[in-house]
Design a protein around this nucleic acid. Structure first.
Length: 445
DNA sequence: AGAGGAATATTC
DNA sequence: GAATATTCCTCT
């Protein structure tokens, strides 16, 4: 206080202001002079915020390994020039950096526009590895910080004892554009003609109209026919062909296809073609209690028999294992899309040890092997379900769904089967709906 | 980690 | 006040 008193005119309001605190996480890389400043002086210097409209709607917090990623990018919307110098703690150490940055540019999803902004998408769309777990909140008695209201989001000062959150490594001065424009022509087939290092400064946001452009009944046909190859896409048995465009191997993924070349997760994809069929041989139980970030895992989705769901690819004659991708989809009457309020959560220590995680346009996707030696069967024993807070998701830019009473999900499985020409056929199936609400689950018992 | 359930917070 | 959401506690 004495420090402040000595440096401001008497009577100047104290708040709101930004307090600068040292953080090993943020400054350990010695990128700038901040590290050399006497950060440990006490009391710490604070900065008064001029025109203090609170842009931040979300309390800063550390990210959990479970759901973290989507939230990482949100930070860019509430950017502050003060956070800008605090960049890139993850540079060179985030496993996501191992992955190609080719994706995410052309296929922004309707609900993840922040995540698809050029400043954030590349790191978000990557492979996940170890992340520092979020600190367990204090006990209920010690702090009312547990639940946050909208007011608290709008005014974090109302949230007592709130944790400090890592500034996004992408919180640069590049503000996430509120309206996206095209930086490069959309390829005729709708895929990225992505080249390594080609990152447009702006991106196209077409997905709000995605379903208009590709109505459910015609999507497959349009998609396939739009390819330059002579694809005879029969409406009754459409299939997807992935053009052979990639420049780097996907080292951390079973699937060697860069995400940018894969159909967006919200696109309808058939479960079978003439040649192949991806089928759910054992459906998951119709209910599963999802866990929150603040909780421990609640285990893997199980089958009614006590075992686990099982998925099999029929018709595959290749010798190479394929990657079966899994994400959490909606279960309402609308077209299937990634569920905004739930994410897959990888359960460790299960029989499926070679599981990969990556983020595709803000949706976490698990990938497990489909191996010929197992008859292309995959036991799905590593899939848990994480519940994201409604308030967090509903405040995301572009999100229109409400979380309340929106508690049914489906497991969605995808596989991309390589074709002789370097192309791929994509197949997708979704499970029966799964009720994830704890309260509703009780009626099952 | 994986459950089950109580307690507390928010929203309708 | 009821319904729903989220956090917390406890045990294995």
């Amino acid at each position: 206080r004495s420090y402040l008193e000595s440096r401001r005119p008497a009577g100047l309001a104290l708040s709101p202001r930004i307090e600068i605190t040292p953080s090993r996480e943020h400054y350990s890389h010695g990128r700038d002079s901040l590290q050399n400043q006497p950060l440990n002086i006490s009391p710490r210097p604070t900065l008064t915020v001029p025109g203090h409209e609170n842009l931040a709607y979300r309390e800063p917090q550390c990210l959990s390994p479970a759901s973290s990623n989507s939230s990482t990018s949100w930070q860019s919307e509430s950017y502050s020039p003060w956070t800008s110098p605090c960049v890139s703690p993850s540079n060179g150490q985030n496993p996501g950096d191992l992955c190609p940055r080719l994706q995410s540019i052309y296929t922004s999803s309707p609900r993840t526009s922040p995540g698809t902004s050029p400043g954030t998408a590349t790191a978000e769309d990557g492979c996940l590895g170890a992340r520092s777990p979020s600190p367990r909140p204090g006990s209920r008695s010690s702090s009312p910080q547990g639940k946050r209201t909208y007011d608290m989001y709008r005014n974090p000062g109302l949230a007592p004892g709130h944790r400090s959150r890592s500034p996004s490594p992408h919180a640069t001065n590049i503000r996430a554009p509120s309206t996206h424009t095209v930086a490069s022509p959309m390829p005729p087939h709708g895929f990225a003609s992505a080249q390594a290092g080609l990152v447009p400064t702006k991106i196209v946001k077409t997905s709000n109209h995605l379903y208009n452009l590709y109505p459910e009944n015609q999507a497959e046909g349009n998609y396939a026919l739009s390819l330059e190859q002579d694809v005879k896409a029969k409406p009754a048995e459409p299939f997807f062909v992935i053009p052979p465009i990639w420049h780097k191997p996907m080292v951390s993924s079973l699937c060697s296809i860069p995400v940018a070349s894969l159909p967006p997760l919200e696109w309808p994809i058939p479960g079978r073609t003439d040649q192949y069929e991806l089928s759910i041989e054992v459906q998951p139980k119709p209910h599963h209690r999802a866990h929150y970030e603040t909780e421990g895992s609640r285990g893997a989705v199980k089958a009614p028999t006590g075992g686990h769901p099982m998925v099999q690819l029929h018709g595959y004659r290749g010798k190479e294992p394929l990657g079966l991708q899994i994400f959490i989809g909606t279960a309402d009457e609308r077209i299937l899309k990634p569920h905004a309020f739930y994410q897959v959560h990888r359960i460790t220590g299960k029989t499926v040890t070679t599981t990969f995680e990556k983020i595709v346009h803000g949706t976490k996707v698990l990938e497990i092997p489909l191996e010929p030696k197992n008859n292309m069967k995959a036991i799905i024993d590593c899939v848990g379900i994480l519940k994201l807070r409604n308030a967090d998701i509903e405040l995301r830019k572009g999100e229109t769904d409400v979380g309340r009473k929106n508690t049914r999900v489906r497991l969605v499985f995808r596989v991309h089967v390589p074709q002789p020409g370097g192309q791929h056929v994509s197949l997708q199936v979704a499970s029966h709906p799964i009720e994830c609400c704890k309260r509703l689950l009780q009626s099952f018992h």
